[in-house]
Design a protein around this nucleic acid. Sequence first.
DNA 1: TATGAATGAGTGTTCATTCAT
DNA 2: TATGAATGAACACTCATTCAT
Lengths: 210, 210, 210, 210
Amino acid sequence: MAKKKDTTRQRILDVAEILFSDKGYDGASIDEISLTAGVNKRMIYYYFGSKKGLLDTLFQNFLRESSSMLMSFVRHGGLESSPDEEAEESIGSYFAYYEEKKDILKIMLMESLKEKEGETPLFSLVDFSSVLDASEIDYYNAQSGMSEREKNQMLVTEFFTGVMPLLAYVIFKEKWCGHFHVTKQDLERFYDRAMEMTHMAYHRMQRKKE
Amino acid sequence: MAKKKDTTRQRILDVAEILFSDKGYDGASIDEISLTAGVNKRMIYYYFGSKKGLLDTLFQNFLRESSSMLMSFVRHGGLESSPDEEAEESIGSYFAYYEEKKDILKIMLMESLKEKEGETPLFSLVDFSSVLDASEIDYYNAQSGMSEREKNQMLVTEFFTGVMPLLAYVIFKEKWCGHFHVTKQDLERFYDRAMEMTHMAYHRMQRKKE
Amino acid sequence: MAKKKDTTRQRILDVAEILFSDKGYDGASIDEISLTAGVNKRMIYYYFGSKKGLLDTLFQNFLRESSSMLMSFVRHGGLESSPDEEAEESIGSYFAYYEEKKDILKIMLMESLKEKEGETPLFSLVDFSSVLDASEIDYYNAQSGMSEREKNQMLVTEFFTGVMPLLAYVIFKEKWCGHFHVTKQDLERFYDRAMEMTHMAYHRMQRKKE
Amino acid sequence: MAKKKDTTRQRILDVAEILFSDKGYDGASIDEISLTAGVNKRMIYYYFGSKKGLLDTLFQNFLRESSSMLMSFVRHGGLESSPDEEAEESIGSYFAYYEEKKDILKIMLMESLKEKEGETPLFSLVDFSSVLDASEIDYYNAQSGMSEREKNQMLVTEFFTGVMPLLAYVIFKEKWCGHFHVTKQDLERFYDRAMEMTHMAYHRMQRKKE
DNA sequence: TATGAATGAGTGTTCATTCAT
DNA sequence: TATGAATGAACACTCATTCAT
């Protein structure tokens, strides 16, 4: 049914994701997006209202998709309550997901760096409060047995020593290989090892505590 | 060195650093920079040739300054060969330096995210080869007793699990506090603790090995 | 006459009258009209062919309505041949009619100000030739006993010192009250008095002559 | 001195006055103005900041010019305190001034018809409060011996039965001649006669009263 | 009667850069 | 060193109108 109908809209979204990621939101022009997508410029305004509306749609689509991942992660008690093998697997799926979504993640990082609005889209990657409703949060809090302080500590640790390195890795992978003359396979080994020795070591220790 | 002579030039540099940091290189216009700095637009071209030249000057000034820090770090054998207290101190000075230079660091991150040019200014933060000459590098390599592979592993670990978290912290500090409703002091404690449990734990282990 | 049939068409006309009056013909867009009227944009073209066609329909509807008023006015010999009380009453109905139709009158004034086309819709307010057929005009001319010159003088006097002040009054009423801080009631009294002392005084004198 | 310097700016103003008058503010585009004036489009923004700024400049220039006329009119006690011949002469100069400034007057009328902003530039034609300072107004009030109510009555009478007819006359003169097939000379006679019998008659009566 | 999708030309505005002095 | 004036190309966005169904 929605075949012919959605191609134009979807083609715009696909092209916008690539161009925003490559040149930044400001650097990519409506003209270039419409030209690359092979659609009339006006169609972007027909479907998304404005350039900002196009960006917001990209973000919302991503959040809708990724929220299920974040929710299942939270519901299963995070990494700490799982046995080592499960945790590894969970990490692996995160790794793959970030690889797949690197374009939109890069756009989110870029937009988060701007000073103007209070919005910092990147925080949505670790902020369940935006994806769970109040009752779920209460339930989770009760079950996890963590104080507010412990929860904040966990968020900070996850974001700055877990998410940010992974984000940087998927974004800078190619450039690093080119600059430092290493193969992709080697870089992946180095990165895995680095995370193993730092962030993963911390998670292992946390699990032992319990 | 001259005084009157440099005020115009320096004022341009100061304003450009702030505006590029706030709005991005593309987002800040020559008109706005000259207006904010209170100088004639033409002066920017007189001193820096182009908008790109202005950005390059900012980067070069930063690299000239920070290279001495990186060099002394390298010459003393990195963190591994130092006793714990010295290492702590060294880390502390890094922390303070990044705080102070957060504007230019943010610009470097932003520019590094762009796809077009091969340049990734952010890598200069860990790449001694750009700051040491060949003979020094040879000497350092011989002295450190590290294989090429070990050196690469170290670079990756430092960049992704050391530099990136710190960079993210100085850049997102204010925004994090606003979004998650924590005080600056608390966030700093959380961040310190996070780094302690991950990156610093790894450094401690490295030092023990030797 | 049909009911369901005319709602869409009529809704478009109603909205167009308001929006053209508020923002001018150029300032009001087809998009806004269709959105406000809650009808599909294409319907405007179905019913009126073009934006210009919509405007023309508004004008024609008004002229069809007002022509009967103008005709009865002319047939009864204008204000001059009536006794004072009838004249007063006639004036009063004009006043009320202009109040009621101020939106369309305002549009006619706006369009009359444009230079391009030869059309000056506002003139239709005093030009019986557009509303009477040739034989009626001949009959009227013979009966009134006015020369061509006297007729032209009368038209000029009516339009510039009768119609224009009334038009300006209904259009600028609200704005005048806001700007000069007078109540609507006071303004109406001032305006009535002004017309009494100028235009009405002239009509009284004309009646006395005969 | 200011010769070469002012040509571009002045040429823009001249062309804008004509095009705004012919096609309306919305109907005349920046492209057309710059093209007709033979200047680069950007120069309009260089000198006036925006299209609105260009319009405002036109209005301000007119007000600065005409304010002296309005002030001298007010200072000499209006028409009422002058002998008949002087009054006639004063009226004559008004007539000529409106003829000369008909373009800008037409723009002011057009803009006054728009609903949006509270501004009604046309009112400035009779509102001394915008052109005199407080002490002058007080002096004038004391001297004229008019009550607030009498002053308001006078403003209303002047605007609706004096200014509006004259405005309509200078704006619609050509179109009237074309539509009703009368010569310019005849129309002027008709108009003069109409004003003589209405507005001027009122002024004569006012003067007699005193 | 009705509609969602599509179009090309045009809107006001801003860009980094250069000219002449 | 400094400056006011000028430029062409690009920017995001809107216009009245038409297509296929």
